[in-house]
Amino acid sequence: MTLELFSQYIFAGITYGIIYAIVAIGFNIIYNTTGIINFAQGEFVMLGGMTAISFNHYLPLPLAIICAVLVTMLIGALIEIAFIRWLESPSVLRMIIITIGLSIIIREMALHVWGDSVRALPYFSGNVVSSITIMGASISPQVLWVLAVCSLMVILLSLFFKFTSLGKEMQACAANRLAATLCGINAKNMVTFSFMLSAALGAVAGCVVSPITSSQYDMGTGLAIKGFTVAVLGGLGNSMAAVAAGLLLGIIEAFSIAVGFPLAFQDAIAISLLLLILFVRPHGLFGNKEAARLKEF
């Protein structure tokens, strides 16, 4: 394999990988504050992309994206308020069924609103054919947008949890919900915030990838599976490890094509990896058993 081809695959891998990582971080944020795996996480990505495309008919692109993110956050908040908030200590199974049900409802509603056509946002800069050469690989400027925006989100997020008071309060809920309540923190509101934050992350990711991967009403399911794999791979609840795990999965997928693995089976890689991890290292690649119980963002 030539160096050019190699870096081409690497770039393809990290582009998808960082999207998986963002979806995984979305899982982690909600998991940390509630202990729930929100299987509707992929739908946030879809909603972000699709609403941005609709808004883009009337608004300039940046404004359309901002509106789409706000709408998705609102939907995230409404979901939490309507379906999660009033449950008193629900069982994990019940939560899983609720979030899977929600993802189906959102998908069907999206089908109703947008139909099953494949749409895409315009390229943020340049167009389909413009490309930049880096290390011999010619890549679309949109790839750089994806990498820049997603990395920025990861950085801002870790700053948010480290330095803002709201971030610390959410972290406190994650660390010990009972104690957070006894400090006077309204844990229920923190859960709503965590849904809004996850929705926003998903929506931004959905917007930046839309020009490359296109958006469709059912894109969320696949992303949710990949994102969940990555979250488990990194160790549930650990967002920095999710970034590493996401890049790993993206690169594995890219190189599986390179070595002639059939494209149709690409999704099987993530699922096999997920099963393997669950059998061998259920606490994740980067976690240890003790740390698996100490949740951290």
Binding site: E169, N176, C183, I185
Partner: peptide, 19 residues
């Protein structure tokens, strides 16, 4: 006790002052 195990001692105290 129920301390915030994954947070610094001082952050624990600061959160106590939340109200």
């Amino acid at each position: 006790r129920q301390v915030f195990a994954t947070m610094r001692v001082e952050d624990n105290l600061i959160l106590g002052g939340y109200v």
